[in-house]
Design a binder for these strands. Structure first.
Length: 308
DNA sequence: CACACACCCTGTTTGC
DNA sequence: TGCAAACAGGGTGTGT
């Protein structure tokens, strides 16, 4: 059996990125970077200095414990005031592989690291190249003593390009009442607001549709018309669907090393709205409707989720 | 300032 | 059967 840890993502939203963080942590925390290779420069488009600068900033450094906020993931570089930042876009994957194993077709960046768990190759793979790695300076968090999940409390710093991203609902410092108030001040449609990463981070198209189905609210409801109770219910459902997905991802993650096909599509069986166009609503049986929205789609039940 | 929308990408699916 | 259009959707930059 190949010794592979494959951190598989359908479409990486918060739960998927958290699964990556959990899997990456034991391999990179305290590890030294022996070598770096940018296989395809599109893998580091977020890095300001270009591929050569990216490689030189990581060669020989020691890495810290990975941190996540919303869909952003970063690994602090010890003693440099910098971090290795990752955003997976819509098709990015992080694979931990034996050094002898052949890389995936769409590998963009490779890191050879030597840590407590031994020597391993970290491959950043991304078919559609919306994702990217970067090495970025860390700065004081403008939100105050807040960072991301996994970050030591004593070191409240954040990569500069993540500083504007809101806390996510799984962060213990997330302000529930503050979020509900800001949501109800928006004149925009509810689903737009949920996807706004400066209001709340980590929600993507899938979990937005799922949370709205659970809360029985139409995605095009004007946010400002929501009652306080409805706003609260929506937040509760967002959090619940993320925790459920995380639990399912975590289940197949129990083994340190799993087969190549370990986690593909693990949450798809649990979906109630997303991707179920024309199929019966799990509550009332009415066909789920798909509606064009912002270059993507909204899925909802026209009976359970009335627009008023 | 708040909000809306086009754009970047490529493998797979759908439609004619 | 073959080809082209549609589709997937993060985040960012720009325009109103």
């Amino acid at each position: 059996m190949p010794r592979v840890l494959r951190l598989r993502l359908a479409v990486p939203e918060l739960p998927e990125v958290e699964v990556v963080r959990l899997g990456l942590a034991p391999a990179v925390t305290g590890a030294r970077v022996d070598a770096v290779s940018v296989v395809d420069p599109r893998g580091v488009t977020r890095h300001v200095g270009g591929p050569a600068d990216f490689e030189s900033r990581l060669a020989g450094v020691t890495l810290g414990a990975p941190v996540r906020r919303g869909k952003f993931l970063w690994v602090p570089v010890e003693g440099r005031g910098e971090a290795l930042l990752a955003h997976l876009g819509m098709s990015g994957q992080v694979l931990l592989r034996d050094e002898s194993m052949a890389p995936e077709r769409h590998v963009r960046v490779q890191l050879w690291v030597d840590g407590p768990g031994g020597r391993v190759r970290v491959d950043f793979v991304d078919q559609r190249t919306f994702g990217s790695l970067a090495v970025e300076p860390l700065s004081a968090d403008p939100l105050g003593a807040r960072a991301g999940v996994g970050w030591p409390e004593v070191w409240p710093e954040i990569p500069v390009s993540v500083a504007h991203i809101a806390l996510d609902p799984l962060d213990p410092r997330f302000d529930d009442a503050g979020f509900c108030g800001r949501l109800r001040a928006k004149r925009t449609e509810l689903k737009r607001a949920l996807l706004d990463q400066t209001l709340v981070s980590g929600i993507g198209n899938i979990y937005a549709d799922e949370a709205l189905w659970s809360a029985r609210v139409h995605p095009r409801t004007v946010a400002a018309t929501l009652s306080a109770q409805a706003a609260r219910r929506i937040l509760d459902e967002v959090r619940a669907v993320m925790l459920r997905a995380l639990a399912e991802g975590g289940t197949s993650f129990d083994a340190q090393y799993v087969n190549v096909n370990g986690q593909a599509g693990y949450f798809s069986r649990s979906l109630n709205a997303y991707g179920r166009t024309g199929e019966p609503c799990h509550r009332c049986g009415r066909a789920i409707v798909r509606e064009a929205f912002m270059n993507r789609s909204s899925h909802y039940c026209p009976r359970c989720q009335r627009l008023r």
